[in-house]
Amino acid sequence: MKNSRSNDLSDRLGASAQAKAALLQAHRSAKEAAEPTRTERQAERLAVAAARDERRADRERQKIAERTRLEVEAAEHQAAINAAAKAEIDARKAAEEGRISRVIEDEAARKAERDRRYANRKARQA
């Protein structure tokens, strides 16, 4: 026989309750014994989390700074392109105005020469 004493229901329930109480007591004592190391581990985890958050924030600041730098660089480049285009347009406009003024001056010189020849011819005929 395995168990010489009788195993009626009340004995089994009592043994179960004692086993549960023993497990609970063992858990409480293990928890109290591990308390200092638990707080150290928790403090270490908090420090690691804070360092990780700081690194993440630093990366975000760097990304924002890089994005801002690229936007400023793009704006400067666009401004340079616009200035070059405006200068080219102004140069073309000035060249066109110069060409027009030369045509007008040439036309006036031809007209003056024609009038001079006409006046000479009239002077010779008179």
Results as ranks from 00 to 15, higher is better:
30 A>E: 12
89 I>F: 11
31 K>W: 06
38 R>W: 06
50 A>E: 14
79 A>S: 04
29 S>T: 10
21 A>D: 12
30 A>I: 02
84 A>M: 08
69 R>K: 12
21 A>R: 11
34 A>S: 14
100 I>H: 15
59 R>Q: 08
91 A>P: 01
14 G>L: 06
81 I>H: 05
72 V>G: 01
9 L>T: 12
61 R>W: 02
92 R>V: 03
41 R>G: 08
27 H>F: 10
46 L>V: 07
23 L>G: 14
101 S>M: 12
20 K>Y: 13
71 E>A: 09
99 R>E: 15
67 R>I: 10
64 I>Q: 13
25 Q>C: 06
59 R>W: 02
62 Q>V: 02
94 A>P: 03
39 T>A: 09
85 A>F: 03
96 E>H: 05
89 I>M: 12
50 A>D: 06
71 E>V: 02
103 V>F: 12
10 S>E: 11
45 R>C: 07
63 K>A: 13
55 R>K: 07
56 R>H: 05
90 D>T: 01
43 A>R: 09
69 R>I: 01
51 A>V: 01
57 A>I: 01
48 V>F: 05
21 A>K: 13
32 E>G: 03
28 R>P: 00
77 H>W: 07
17 A>W: 07
82 N>G: 03
85 A>V: 05
14 G>D: 13
32 E>Y: 02
35 E>P: 00
25 Q>T: 07
94 A>N: 06
80 A>S: 09
21 A>F: 07
57 A>P: 06
67 R>K: 09
95 A>N: 10
33 A>K: 11
19 A>M: 06
98 G>P: 03
69 R>W: 03
22 A>C: 08
44 E>P: 00
74 A>K: 07
41 R>K: 15
59 R>M: 03
76 E>R: 14
68 T>Q: 13
89 I>V: 13
58 D>A: 14
41 R>P: 06
97 E>W: 04
32 E>P: 01
35 E>Y: 05
95 A>R: 08
72 V>C: 06
83 A>I: 01
94 A>T: 04
99 R>D: 14
81 I>V: 14
75 A>K: 05
29 S>K: 10
49 A>L: 13
92 R>W: 04
63 K>T: 04
47 A>V: 00
46 L>G: 13
61 R>Q: 05
51 A>Q: 13
51 A>C: 08
14 G>E: 09
83 A>R: 09
23 L>W: 10
100 I>T: 11
23 L>F: 11
10 S>R: 12
49 A>I: 01
51 A>R: 14
86 K>Y: 04
13 L>C: 07
46 L>S: 14
42 Q>V: 02
51 A>D: 15
43 A>G: 08
99 R>F: 08
83 A>P: 02
46 L>F: 08
69 R>Y: 09
57 A>Y: 01
58 D>W: 05
62 Q>T: 03
103 V>S: 15
26 A>T: 08
62 Q>N: 03
34 A>I: 02
64 I>D: 07
98 G>Y: 03
37 T>I: 08
79 A>P: 00
46 L>C: 12
59 R>P: 00
91 A>R: 13
80 A>W: 02
46 L>Q: 15
19 A>S: 11
77 H>D: 10
32 E>L: 12
87 A>C: 01
56 R>A: 14
52 R>H: 13
80 A>K: 07
11 D>Q: 13
49 A>F: 04
50 A>F: 02
78 Q>C: 09
33 A>L: 04
45 R>Q: 15
24 L>D: 14
70 L>T: 06
28 R>D: 06
56 R>V: 03
